[in-house]
């Protein structure tokens, strides 16, 4: 059975811990991984893909030493292996231009400002994972409790 991964990329260890803690509940059916840099994330993405598993969601910090979050998201967006992967930008600081860039070049799906609200973050994650599962055509039943109901119901209705 293929695994679906949620990857969080954040250079500040404390912040990463906090994000992972907030998404802990998803570990019941998904696989949660943290990365401290974009380069590390790229390696992990390769590895997961090579193992035949899915990257359902990539949560990415904006400003990081080395490659920035947006650069990473742009690369993932261009990569056909991850065409269904959902992308969430988590940022404390972004200009108008950054935002435009993130949407146009990286095609990010969601944009959350730091400090984030736990419930809001989890709700967004549910929505994105639901979309991913239906986009990718994975049987949704097993993941049902962790997916956004609205998305699931709409997709199921359309699916007949």
């Amino acid at each position: 059975m293929e695994k679906i991964f949620i990857i969080c990329v954040e250079d500040q260890r404390e912040v990463l811990n906090a994000v992972l803690k907030d998404l802990e509940s998803f570990e019941a059916v998904f696989f949660l991984e943290g990365c401290e840099s974009a380069d590390e994330a790229e390696e992990l993405l390769d590895e997961i893909d090579a193992g035949g598993n899915y990257i359902g969601l990539l949560i990415c910090d904006h400003i990081m030493p080395g490659k920035s979050g947006i650069e990473l998201l742009i690369e993932v967006n261009r990569d056909p292996r991850f065409s269904y992967t959902k992308k969430l930008l988590l940022t404390g600081l972004a200009t108008h231009q950054d935002t435009i860039n993130a949407i146009n070049s990286a095609a990010i799906d969601r944009y959350i400002e730091k400090p984030w609200n736990v419930d809001a973050l989890q709700a967004q994650v549910r929505t994105l994972l639901a979309q991913f599962i239906f986009d990718q055509g994975i049987a949704y039943e097993k993941y049902l409790p962790y997916l956004d109901q609205g998305v699931v119901l709409e997709r199921v209705r359309k699916g007949g």
Partner: peptide, 16 residues
């Protein structure tokens, strides 16, 4: 006339 699942999804969307 529709699948039970799709009908349920549709009505739950209204109800949710």
């Amino acid at each position: 006339f529709m699948s039970n699942t799709a009908t349920t999804a549709m009505m739950l969307t209204v109800l949710a």
